[in-house]
Amino acid sequence: MSIYLCISGIVFSVYLIANLWAMSSNRLNQPGYVLTDLDGLVGVRHNSLSRLFSGFTTLVAKQHIRRIQVSSECLTLFTDADDCVNIWLSDRYLPINANYAKVLFPQAEFVDSPFLP
């Protein structure tokens, strides 16, 4: 039983260290990497795991994004059907990614949270 606890503790520790590194990495949090323009689609890497492994990228059609909302540590893209994609970023990378989202989705309404400094 203790071997399983030890192994799960090691796996959790490795995941935690990789997650913290990915959240603070300059390269992995650049706007062109988080939001990848693919003509009519945008590839969204919405969390640190998807920034480490490209297989977890979410594709969204540009014309379906109607609202962009910025709140503390989260950039949210809302679609026509009121579905949303939350993009989790540290406060350091949130403004540049929000500005890039404005460029990618010019027809979308931009809502800035009143709780941001």
Score class of each variant (00 low, 15 high):
28 L>M: 13
54 S>R: 04
40 G>P: 01
91 D>T: 01
33 Y>F: 14
75 L>C: 08
109 E>A: 13
31 P>F: 11
101 A>E: 08
49 L>Q: 10
90 S>F: 02
36 T>I: 12
110 F>C: 05
88 W>E: 01
108 A>H: 00
32 G>N: 05
42 V>L: 12
102 K>E: 10
68 I>E: 07
80 D>H: 02
83 D>T: 01
100 Y>G: 03
85 V>N: 01
59 L>I: 02
84 C>H: 04
67 R>L: 15
36 T>L: 12
56 F>H: 10
42 V>T: 10
56 F>R: 10
27 R>W: 11
84 C>K: 03
47 N>F: 08
45 R>Y: 14
92 R>E: 14
101 A>V: 09
49 L>C: 08
100 Y>P: 01
94 L>N: 00
32 G>Y: 04
92 R>F: 15
63 Q>N: 13
81 A>I: 10
42 V>F: 09
46 H>I: 03
49 L>T: 07
32 G>I: 04
41 L>N: 07
64 H>G: 04
111 V>K: 06
31 P>C: 07
55 G>N: 11
80 D>Y: 00
54 S>N: 05
43 G>R: 06
60 V>L: 13
33 Y>I: 11
56 F>T: 08
36 T>V: 14
68 I>F: 10
78 F>M: 14
109 E>W: 02
66 R>P: 12
112 D>R: 03
78 F>T: 13
71 S>P: 07
78 F>I: 13
74 C>A: 02
38 L>R: 07
108 A>G: 03
89 L>I: 01
35 L>H: 08
78 F>H: 09
36 T>N: 11
58 T>Q: 07
72 S>I: 15
37 D>K: 10
57 T>H: 03
95 P>I: 07
67 R>P: 12
30 Q>M: 12
92 R>V: 07
37 D>V: 06
51 R>G: 05
60 V>I: 15
46 H>F: 15
107 Q>Y: 00
35 L>Q: 06
80 D>W: 00
59 L>T: 02
83 D>K: 10
72 S>K: 14
61 A>C: 09
66 R>L: 15
53 F>M: 13
108 A>I: 07
62 K>L: 11
71 S>Q: 14
43 G>P: 09
94 L>R: 01
73 E>F: 12
45 R>S: 05
92 R>A: 06
42 V>Y: 06
86 N>A: 10
74 C>L: 08
32 G>S: 10
98 A>F: 09
48 S>D: 11
69 Q>S: 13
107 Q>G: 09
67 R>V: 15
100 Y>D: 00
69 Q>R: 15
80 D>E: 15
28 L>F: 05
109 E>M: 05
60 V>S: 05
107 Q>H: 10
29 N>R: 09
77 L>T: 04
52 L>R: 07
69 Q>E: 15
106 P>Q: 01
109 E>K: 03
61 A>W: 14
99 N>F: 11
46 H>S: 13
112 D>M: 13
61 A>G: 05
82 D>M: 07
37 D>E: 12
28 L>H: 00
61 A>F: 15
86 N>W: 04
47 N>S: 12
31 P>S: 08
